[in-house]
Design a binder for these strands. Structure first.
Lengths: 164, 164
DNA sequence: TTACTAATTAGTTGTTATTCCTATTTAATA
DNA sequence: TATTAAATAGGAATAACAACTAATTAGTAA
């Protein structure tokens, strides 16, 4: 008998949680299912509201904390830059950004090739583009030196992900 | 006698303010100078702290409001995504984002070319990249329909930029 | 210059997003 | 089944911003 896709995904989720040393709680499974069915880049608040309908006892903190944990595990990503304080960029030259996930540094870089990227026709028709930017996310030199902590999904198992 | 670069920039600033129908206040000139000298994508708070040393009476609200006005005028930009609530992205496929500056919508799109961008050698040496993403900022179809408001720097002069 | 007027400001108060704290509960293991 | 460390709910604290209002000031036109 074949497993449903849903079942398979949940199995993989459970397996990965175990590899990270995380307990399988009903809350985590619920949040996992809800977020995987989202196609609109929801906020923690939005996910919390949806889940609350079926599970009125769940707390916002649990939803938010769990989502951050999932991001560290690599189950989902955080939309580039969102959640940061607003930052201003006085650089008028066409340029692109390096973002360090660890320390939050944003570093300008220049690369002509990136300034000349073509935009797909379907997008031109439906969206008026007035800025095109390439964002490279990773770990900056300084942070690489300071710690050897690897990023998900290469984090070694059994290291607490988000200690308080 | 040649004008200094600083003077020239301030002249251009004053000229542009006038074109937008904005008054030239000492606060605006101070904030303009401070932000133009920043190379680290400062937050409003950071700029406020720096300015406060020399102008202890300035208020945070003025700094923040002025920076937003400058962004609308096109004197500076807001770093992609910063200032938004944190948003999660469960899409594991390599993909890119369209961001509507007006309504805040984030729309996924797929374009193979963008997945194969090469990374400059200098960056590879100093930064470990684990995500590359292209962000197209502009105005989505829906918002184009709703209003004809043009974006800076094409805003017509004498239209209040950030009315209360 | 001086007087006028609307824009701008400082200071304060709200609001919202997010994190922190702690007592209680629960999943995993023996 | 008992143990224990992790996870949770709920509330409090914090931080980033935005909104409000009375007082001040820049721009202008006499």
């Amino acid at each position: 008998m074949k497993k449903s896709i849903k079942k398979k995904m949940t199995d993989k989720f459970i397996e990965t949680c175990k590899a990270f040393g995380l307990k399988i709680t009903p809350q985590r499974i619920t949040i996992y299912r809800e977020v995987l069915n989202s196609f609109d880049h929801p906020s923690a608040e939005a996910i919390y509201r949806k889940i609350k309908e079926a599970h009125p006892n769940i707390s916002f903190d649990t939803v938010n904390r769990t989502l951050l944990t999932f991001a560290e595990m690599g189950f989902l990503q955080i939309v580039e830059g969102s959640g940061d304080v607003r930052r201003f960029d006085p650089n008028a030259e066409p340029h692109h950004h390096l973002r360090c996930k660890q320390c939050g540094a944003i570093i300008d870089f220049y690369y002509k090739k990136y300034n000349q990227l073509d935009i797909p026709e379907e997008i031109k028709e439906k969206f008026s583009v007035n800025r095109i930017r390439v964002v490279l996310e990773g770990i900056c030199h300084r942070c690489q030196d300071h710690t050897n902590r690897r990023e998900a999904p290469f984090v070694s198992a059994r290291v607490p992900l988000r200690g308080r």
